[in-house]
Design a protein around this nucleic acid. Structure first.
Lengths: 311, 311
DNA sequence: GTTGAGCATAATCTCGCCTTATGTGTTGAA
DNA sequence: TTCAACACATAAGGCGAGATTATGCTCAAC
C-alpha cells in the first residue's frame, strides 16, 4: 500500500472534514477562513470524483452519509496526526525534566542505586522515575523512556537493547554456611524456595527455572511466597531460604557479599531489558543524554563500591 | 485539538513524505508525476515555514533530520489512513460473506443453535464464524462483527448492546432431586461446585459470585475444575454438581428441562454482551442484515423448540 | 580535470481554488 | 398564504500557489 497510493485532493478533504465535523458548510467555511461557496465547490469536487454523495442535503441542514462518516473520521484522525506531529517538532522547549518508567525491581535494585551518577554528570536535569509493574503506555503517560523486559518488539516505541539477563539461585552467606554444600538440583529443592507472585508472562518463577533442567517443582515445597520480587530478595538477604536472582538485579549485592550463589546452574533468559522511547515524540536533549547514560551504564561492569539502596 | 488546528500545506507535505520515504527528491518527483524542481521548492517551503531543515543535504544524497523523520512517519501514517479509507468507501463489492467472531461459550450455547434461522432468511449470505476466546482484533482479523462481553467501550469498534446477563447456579434435574432442596447459600457451597479456568477479568467465577452476597468461597470445596465454560456446563448436564449458569447461555437448556435452577439467588452482571463493528470499514449489506438479525434475536425470548447443539 | 548525478535557483506560465454575485428550496412567522 | 430568512448551489472571473523549463552548483568517481 505504501507506494503509489491514490490520494484525493487534500485541500478538498480538509474542507470536507471540517464540514462533516461541524455539520455545516457555512461554519466550515468560517473555520477555514474561506467563503461558503468555496467549501461547497470543494465538496462537490470530491463527490464527483468518488461518484457518490458524501452528504445528504436536507432542508436547512446537511447530514453525512455512511461513506462520508467513514471518510470524515479517517480524515480527522489523519489531520490530527499531522497536526500533533507538527506541534511536536515545532515546539522548542528546553526540557530539563526526563520521565523514566521502570518496574519496581529494576528501579530498586538497578536504576536507583546508579542514578546519582547521572545526576552528578548532569546537575541541570531533573529525573522523574515512575515505578510501576504493569507496562505503562508511553504516549498517554507522557513518558520519555521506559525500561521494559521483553523481546524488544513493542508497538508504541523504539527499543534499544540494554542487556540480556540470566537467572540463578541465591541466598545469604549465613544461610549458605548452615545449609552446607549444594551440589544437585535435588538438594536445592529440599531447601525453602522463596518465590513471588507473577502475572507477567515473561517472568520466570521456580517451576519455569527448574523446567529448563527438565525438572519439576515438587508439589510440597517449603519457603516464603512474596507478593513482589523485591520482598523475595529481602527474604533471601534475611537468610530465609533460596531465591531466584536475576543477574543484573542482584549483581551489586553479590559483589558486596550480601548474597552468594549456591550453585552454578543458571538459566539465560530468552528476553532482555530494553530502553524504549516514543515513536511520536522528539527526544529532548536531556532524554538523549539519559538514554546514552543508560546504555553506557548497562554495558559497564557492576560496581562494588556502589552504595546500594536502603539496606 | 480538534478545532482550528494549524496544518502545513498538504501538497508540500505529500512531496516531503515521498522524498523522505524514497530518500530522494528525484524519485519522489517521479512518483508524484512532477519535476524534481517542484519537489525541491515544496520542501523548501515547508522548511522555511518551520524554520529548520527537514533534510540534511549531503553530497549526492539527502538524509532526513530527526524532526523530519518524525514528521515523515506521521505523514505516512496519515496518508495511509486516508488512502485506506478512500479505498474502503470506493470499493463496491457485493460481499456475500460475513465473518463473525465470538467466544467458545457464546458460539456454542447461543449463536450456533440460532444461526440456521438467519441462513433460512438469507440463503445467499455465507457466514463464517470465528470461535476464539481471547479477544480478536477487528481490523487485522478481517472481522465484520465481533460479539464481545464487556462494558461496551472498545477502541477498535462501535458497540451496540445485545443484552445484559445474569448468573445463577444450575444443575441437572436428576442432581437436583438427589441433592434435595437447597435453601441457603451455606447449603449450596456444600455441594460440588463446578468451576472453570478464567483469565478474562470480566468473567465471574464462584468466588466473585458468592462475594456478591458477602460470602466467601470455603477453602475446601469439592467439584470439578474445567478448562472451559462449555465443559463446566456439560459436567452440570451430567449431574456432576452445580455450575454457574449465564442466563442467555443456558436458557435453552433450562427451557428444555435439561438443566434446572437450584436457588433464586442471582447476580446481575455489570457488563453485557455487545455486537462490535469496525469503525474503519463500511458494513456490507450482508453484515448489516446479520447485525439486525442479531439484535432482533437477542431481544426475542428464548425458544423452547429450538434444536440445541449436539447433545 | 572532467564528468555526471542530484539538489538549488530563477523566470515564467497556468490552472486550481477562491471570491463575488446570484439562484434555489425550505421553513417559520406574519 | 405570503414573505423573509437561512443554507446550500451555481456561474463567472481573478489571482496566486505550484507547476515547468532551463540553468547553476557541488562533490565523488574515474
Amino acid at each position: 500500500m505504501g507506494i503509489r497510493r491514490k490520494l484525493p485532493p487534500l485541500t478538498a478533504l480538509t474542507a470536507f472534514e471540517a464540514a462533516a465535523r461541524l455539520s455545516s458548510f457555512t461554519k466550515a467555511a468560517a473555520e477555514l477562513g474561506v467563503t461558503q461557496a468555496a467549501v461547497s465547490r470543494q465538496i462537490q469536487l470530491l463527490e464527483s470524483q468518488f461518484g457518490f454523495p458524501l452528504f445528504a442535503r436536507l432542508h436547512r441542514k446537511i447530514e453525512v452519509t455512511d461513506r462520508g462518516r467513514l471518510l470524515a473520521s479517517a480524515s480527522q484522525e489523519a489531520f490530527d496526526l499531522i497536526s500533533a506531529s507538527v506541534a511536536e517538532i515545532t515546539k522548542e522547549s528546553q526540557e530539563t525534566e526526563v520521565t523514566i518508567a521502570a518496574t519496581v525491581a529494576f528501579s530498586h535494585f538497578w536504576l536507583l542505586p546508579r542514578i546519582s551518577d547521572f545526576s552528578r554528570q548532569h546537575p541541570g536535569i531533573n529525573l522523574r522515575i515512575v515505578t510501576q509493574d504493569n507496562m505503562p503506555n508511553i504516549e498517554s503517560n507522557k513518558l520519555d523512556i521506559a525500561v521494559r523486559f521483553g523481546n524488544g518488539m513493542w508497538p508504541d516505541g523504539q527499543a534499544t537493547l540494554l542487556f540480556d539477563d540470566e537467572i540463578f539461585p541465591i541466598c545469604s552467606p549465613q544461610y549458605a554456611q548452615t545449609a552446607g554444600k549444594i551440589e544437585t538440583l535435588q538438594e536445592l529443592v529440599n531447601n525453602p524456595l522463596i518465590s513471588n507472585m507473577v502475572d507477567d508472562p515473561t517472568w520466570s518463577g521456580w517451576s519455569e527455572w527448574l523446567a529448563a533442567f527438565s525438572m519439576e517443582l515438587p508439589k510440597k515445597t517449603s519457603g516464603l511466597r512474596c507478593s513482589f520480587y523485591t520482598e523475595a530478595i529481602y527474604a533471601a538477604l534475611n537468610g530465609q531460604g533460596i531465591a531466584l536472582g536475576w543477574r543484573h538485579l542482584v549483581e551489586d549485592l553479590l559483589i558486596q557479599g550480601q548474597l552468594v550463589r549456591v550453585t552454578d546452574f543458571t538459566v539465560k533468559t530468552r528476553n532482555a531489558y530494553f530502553a524504549v522511547v516514543s515513536k511520536r515524540r522528539l527526544p529532548s536533549e536531556a532524554t538523549r543524554l539519559f538514554q546514552s547514560w543508560l546504555a553506557e551504564t548497562a554495558d559497564a561492569p557492576a560496581m562494588a563500591n556502589q552504595v546500594t539502596a536502603v539496606l
